[in-house]
Simulated scan of single mutants.
Amino acid sequence: MSRDLIQTFREQFEGEPEFGLFSPGRVNLIGEHIDYCGGLVLPMAIDRGTFGLVSGNDSDLIRIQSTRFSKSIEISLSEKKTNSHWSDFVVGVVCLLGKQYSLSGFNICVDDNISAGGLSSSASFSILLAMAALKVAGIGLQNDAEKLSLARLCRQVENDFVGLSCGIMDQASVVLGGVIRLDCEELSFSRINIDFQDHQLVIIDSGKERTLAGSKYNQRVNEINEILALLQMEYALDNLCALTTDELDRAARFIGDEKLVRRMRHVVSENARVNRATLALGAGDLGTFGGLLSESHESLRMDYEVTGFELDTLVEISRSQAGVLGARMTGAGFGGCCIALVEKSRVEEHNRQVEARYLARTGLTAKFILANESAGAGDWPVQDFRSV
């Protein structure tokens, strides 16, 4: 984080924080752009995320100091109006939680060390805000079912208040933590124990910025809805991921439109890749898993068209390095990050080569994060904020 958050809290609110929270970011290992299609996803919560120091303030106001945005805002508990600003997350959380619970005002000082697109900084932020509001109100999350209920609420915040038609993956990963295989239709999950053995998962930030609400993300969601409406005239489908790879050729003839066929092909094949990836990881077959990462990227590039020059360049350069088992974009795309599974002994050289060659081809500086698994959002000791 940028500085001593405790001191920032004292200066802003003229008092001491009562408790601290941490809400992780997440990296999606595989299963991209299918959480809003009722598909399977394999996200991992990471040890980068959003930190918050909190105290009650005996008012009807939420006072927020964000060191990331160098801004202070005040939001009334009764506020319902959005204004295309990061404060819309606050308005959404307060509005939706306020329908279920009696909330109280609080002060919160927020910072993060995510610093890269595609790692669910928005879900991390909204989950942190919601947990702060609940804790000030004396309400705890007792089990996974209650955590998933909070994930659904924070998804609704992004859908209805921020304007992004996202699925449930990001919020579920952030609040549950670890590595999970999540069925986004049933909202059921299983925890996956992953051993990357002598390899390291490297997150590479492309430096290409984007906002999902302003990208073609919502356009892709609309295309999926169009495909599903067409197929439901022929198939009994609740979601597109209920279609199997064996049914693709017949379904393609029924849809007709070549672009929509490619979108469908990505969704159905990506859902199958999650199953294959889960089996490969369970068997310790990192070679197969790495190959599936690369397959996923090609599908996202050719069929779903959400990668772009920067991410394609990063993946291409990374794959060409010795000791790399596979690489792909992660997150929604249109900029943001990719991941690579790299032999530990070669990570330093891999990063040096990728940085130099990517800069030469794009003029952008790549940044590298060595991803480690994290628990889900929850308490973080106040005294530890000085050392984060």
Rank of each mutant, 00 (worst) to 15 (best):
V94K: 02
R265A: 08
L148G: 02
G178K: 12
T8Q: 08
L260V: 13
V179M: 05
E355Q: 14
Q156D: 14
R152F: 05
S173Q: 04
L311Y: 05
E16F: 05
D246T: 13
Y235N: 06
R328D: 04
M302T: 13
T50C: 12
L129M: 15
M131W: 00
D312H: 09
T8C: 09
S78P: 00
V354Y: 04
N271A: 09
E349K: 13
L359Y: 10
P24Q: 05
D111L: 10
Y304I: 11
S66F: 10
I6S: 03
T245Y: 04
L314P: 01
V136D: 03
G31N: 11
R352K: 15
V174E: 04
E343T: 11
M233H: 09
E223G: 05
A340N: 06
V175I: 15
R357D: 14
T362K: 08
E234M: 03
L293K: 04
G15W: 08
G290W: 03
Q353Y: 03
R262M: 12
I168D: 00
I30L: 09
P43W: 02
R48C: 05
L134S: 09
A377H: 00
L293V: 07
D312G: 11
I139D: 04
I30M: 06
R361M: 14
D58G: 09
Q142C: 08
G376C: 06
K147I: 03
P381A: 08
L187T: 12
C338N: 06
T82Q: 06
E355N: 05
R352S: 13
H33G: 04
T365M: 06
L182A: 04
R361T: 12
E343H: 13
L359K: 14
G284C: 12
S78K: 14
D249R: 12
